[in-house]
Nucleic acid binder design. Structure first.
Lengths: 343, 343
DNA sequence: ACCGTCACCGCAAACGTTTGCGGAATATCA
DNA sequence: TGATATTCCGCAAACGTTTGCGGTGACGGT
């Protein structure tokens, strides 16, 4: 149990010089004689000196840590984003501390202030599904703490954001379904308070319009089905049993698409011959179902990278330097699989 | 940009008292008059005083942060474990900083020392697949930094560990296959340097022996197929085309099981009538395939919780107190699904 | 008038590091 | 020899907090 690490003071004492000199010697400051430098570095190496990062943080009033708040960690997309964040953060010398809101507004507020109290240098956030008030963001942002939103962004705060081109992704996947010959394409929509739901809906509408298909509210599934596979299945079954059922479905995300698929299979329809399905996000499992699900790939890793870059840029800006908020829109990638086209 | 947070000194200055008194007033120390206390707490509230956790860390030489090293974040099981770790850590007042080794030994070493340099109070580790040398663990452990291993544990280090009862899980799932009437059960084994591979193999063997089935090396798939779906599929196809093919497969994990499933489907065999499949870990997607895959649930969340508890217990032990390393073995849960039994 | 007790508060050191400033010793020059 | 420049180093403050110890003043008891 050699408890304490060796410090600058220890080295100074052993060499009979002051800590200032040791500090300077270690960073190769010109005002230190070569002999002293050598003595210091030798001893530092011998004792395996590691600068105390906490003392450094206090001195510089900078923790070199960034906080991340996401709805959930156990989630293919978000964990991919974290991976991207860490990639950039680590190579820039930052640690990453992650906390999850579990899609709860209250928890998100707690997490936000906890990170602020922990003196992180900046925060990356993807909002919870419940969040409709933004005071907690406002508060810490006004305090001068850099914030960057990603994916589930907040329009009310004037800061940098990274999103995926939801509109275009939805447009492309819907167009694909139309090009495959499907005529009556339903849409399972997302929660109304997330902008991405609106964007995807708009992309869907644009594709319909462009191909002279009319938008029909009766084949739109709204509400909480987006993240509830069972509900998605139920509502799809209902739709399939209706008078004028759809022949394809674009679901707002892959989990919902899976619910749709189960409903369609249960009904005895063949995929994609009788009914085509497309999701959104390219979650891992979409390649594993039978048939595999057509979807839209969101560059999660890249999103994490970009968000981290924007944040660090802001953190490391000079005091008087004014950083204009930047909105990064990442292109999506249409992944065509068996659920929408015969292989 | 109100840059600086208010400090104890600021409050002290404004009230014309010393920082010591403010500090004591804030923690309700008896040696402070009620009036002073009130004045201090009022002002603290007014300015929304937040203790500077970095200064605290320096003072107490304790960062209240724990480090986690896992092979990858984008992984259902490991992200579940993290979730469990955070659950315990946050309620005990610790932050969690996560880093991933990406299954690389070199990266694991770097991460280990980076965490140590960042002055975490303890480390939770699940080893990379590559790791066969343990000097980096040894070094920091000798330095007195508490370590707890989980899942992929290291026998060479004498510290607390949390594992799943791999032996029993494998035994149960194999027995289940036997009870369903399958006679020639193959096994896709894991990397040899991970103890869990051996344990699962042993559980498999025990079930065979108990039912008087002989162990046949020719239907064991070894090598790198465990985390390579494509390879798993190839080798399974090879096995299916052999002279005396198996009628069931217990795969060391779910990803491999999926490869097996694809091979079996491609061969035109019916699952489970002609061929049964079982995996291990209960990854999310196993419930989503068609048919759903029988597997063994590993309590990832609970594992995270237990590991965090053990670590924090060690961190918060008194200096002279001797903490005996503890090995926690968590029970698994057999999840029977369509791939091994007709519904 | 002296002493002891008590309640309340401040001083200063400590955690480990950085850095502006000044000072001592040596070297350079007139 | 005396003045000045150069080289190297230490002092002390600062980051924000905690805490042992000592100090002050009021009060009651003898």
């Amino acid at each position: 149990m050699k408890n304490s690490q060796v410090t600058i003071k220890d080295i100074a004492k052993e060499l009979g010089i002051s800590s200032s000199t040791v500090s300077r010697a270690l960073k190769n400051h010109p005002n230190v004689s070569p002999e002293t430098k050598k003595a210091v570095t030798d001893l530092a190496e011998k004792y395996n000196y590691q600068p105390n990062s906490i003392a450094l943080s206090l001195r510089r009033s900078k923790s070199n840590t960034i906080g991340v708040i996401i709805p959930e960690i156990v989630h293919f997309f978000f964990s991919t984003v974290i991976s991207g964040i860490e990639d950039i953060a680590y190579s820039a010398g930052y640690s990453v501390i992650v906390s999850q809101s579990n899609e709860s507004y209250d928890r998100e507020v707690i997490d936000t202030f906890a990170l602020s109290k922990n003196r992180v240098d900046g925060i990356l956030i993807s909002m919870s599904r419940e969040t409709t008030k933004y005071d907690h963001f406002e508060t810490i942002h006004k305090r001068g703490l850099p914030i960057v939103f990603f994916d589930r962004v907040c329009d009310a705060i004037n800061c940098s954001k990274v999103v995926v081109d939801d509109f275009d992704g939805a447009y492309q996947v819907t167009r694909h379904l139309i090009q495959q010959g499907f005529k009556r394409i339903a849409h399972l929509a997302g929660p109304e308070n997330l902008i991405l739901s609106k964007h995807r809906m708009d992309g869907y509408k644009k594709a319909l319009k462009e191909h002279s298909l009319e938008f029909d509210e009766s084949i739109i599934i709204r509400g909480r089905a987006a993240d509830n596979e069972t509900l998605a299945k139920q509502l799809t079954t209902q739709l399939l049993n209706s008078a004028n059922p759809p022949d394809a479905m674009f679901a707002i995300n892959d989990r919902a698409a899976l619910g749709v698929m189960k409903a369609v299979k249960e009904k005895g329809l063949k995929i994609p011959q009788d009914f085509a399905i497309a999701g959104f996000s390219n979650w891992e499992f979409t390649a594993m179902t039978d048939p595999a699900i057509t979807t839209v790939d969101q560059p999660g890793f890249k999103m994490g990278q970009e968000a981290a870059k924007l944040l660090i840029r802001e953190i490391e800006a000079e005091k008087d330097e004014v950083i204009e908020p930047e909105i990064k829109i990442l292109k999506t990638d249409l992944i065509i699989r068996g659920s929408s086209v015969a292989v």
